[in-house]
Amino acid sequence: MLIRRETPADQAAIHAVHSEAFRRDGNDPPVEAPLVDELRADGDLINALSLVAVRDSEVVGHVCCSRARLGEDTTTAVGLGPLGVLPAHQRDGVGSALMHAVLGAADALGHGLVVLLGNPAYYSRFGFVTASDLSITAPDPAWGPHFQARTLAAYQSTQAGAFEYAPAFSRI
């Protein structure tokens, strides 16, 4: 498996990954696939933090980070998500490989925090903690322990306050 940055040629495959990974019962299409498209169109998708997992020349997974605001700061924190893996490749280490790669890349780029909304049982293995433990306020208080943050090398305890995702998140 190869983890690399997304290229323009990957966009349809990335859309397909999230459409399949987040497919729900019924006819409602998952919001994650158009979310990535909107983040990209708005210029909020961070190119260096939009990674694909490739097996046998096929894109089988994708993770991305987007610009975010933490208090008045728009440079140190990023929003992670979505993270998606094609169902046939789930529980095969693809998601973990993507998480390790994107966290390492965010750290290398000098970001202090990565913030996400997700399952604490899954994301705690990557060092995520409840964001409120770091004095980071969720956009929606009902998110509780599912709103999580991971500190990186550039983190400073003054990086706190209300977190705001890129505008595309509020449109979904």
Rank of each mutant, 00 (worst) to 15 (best):
Ala33Arg: 11
Leu35Lys: 06
Arg171Cys: 00
Phe169Asp: 02
Ala48Ser: 13
His100Glu: 13
Tyr165Met: 00
Ala168Lys: 01
Arg91Glu: 12
Arg150Trp: 03
His89Glu: 14
Gln90Gly: 07
Ser66Gln: 03
Pro141Gly: 09
Ala101Phe: 09
Ile172Phe: 00
Ser170Gln: 03
Ser66Thr: 07
Ala48Asn: 10
Gly110Tyr: 08
Asn27Asp: 15
Leu134Cys: 12
Ala77Asp: 10
Ala88Ile: 02
Ala13Lys: 13
Ala88Met: 08
Arg91Asn: 15
Phe147Pro: 10
Pro120Val: 06
Ser57His: 11
Ala131Ile: 04
Val85Pro: 08
Val59Asn: 02
Arg4Tyr: 04
Thr151Leu: 00
Glu20Leu: 15
Pro145Tyr: 00
Arg69Ile: 14
Asp37Ala: 15
Ala168Pro: 04
Ser170Glu: 01
Gln90Ser: 12
Phe128Asn: 08
Gly161Ser: 01
Val54Arg: 11
Ile172Ala: 06
His111Met: 05
Ala168Gly: 01
Tyr165His: 03
Leu103Asp: 11
Leu116Asn: 07
Asp133Lys: 15
Asp44Ala: 14
Ala68Trp: 03
Val115Met: 02
Phe126Arg: 08
Met1Asn: 07
Ala153Gln: 05
Ala162Thr: 13
Ile14Pro: 01
Gly26Thr: 05
Thr74Asn: 11
Gly43Lys: 12
Leu109Pro: 02
Ile46Gly: 04
Leu49Asn: 05
Ser50Glu: 02
Ala101Val: 08
Leu39Ile: 06
Ser50Pro: 09
Ala77Cys: 08
Glu38Ala: 14
Ala41Leu: 13
Leu152His: 00
Leu86Cys: 05
Thr137Asp: 14
Asp44Trp: 11
Leu116Tyr: 05
Asp107Phe: 03
Met1Glu: 09
Leu2Arg: 15
Ala168Cys: 00
Ala162Ile: 05
Gly144Met: 07
Ala9Gly: 08
Phe163Ala: 05
Pro29Arg: 01
Asp28Phe: 02
Arg23Cys: 01
Asp73Leu: 10
Ala12Pro: 10
Arg55Val: 14
Leu98Arg: 10
Arg67Asp: 06
Asp107Val: 04
Leu49Val: 05
Trp143Asp: 15
Gly61Ile: 03
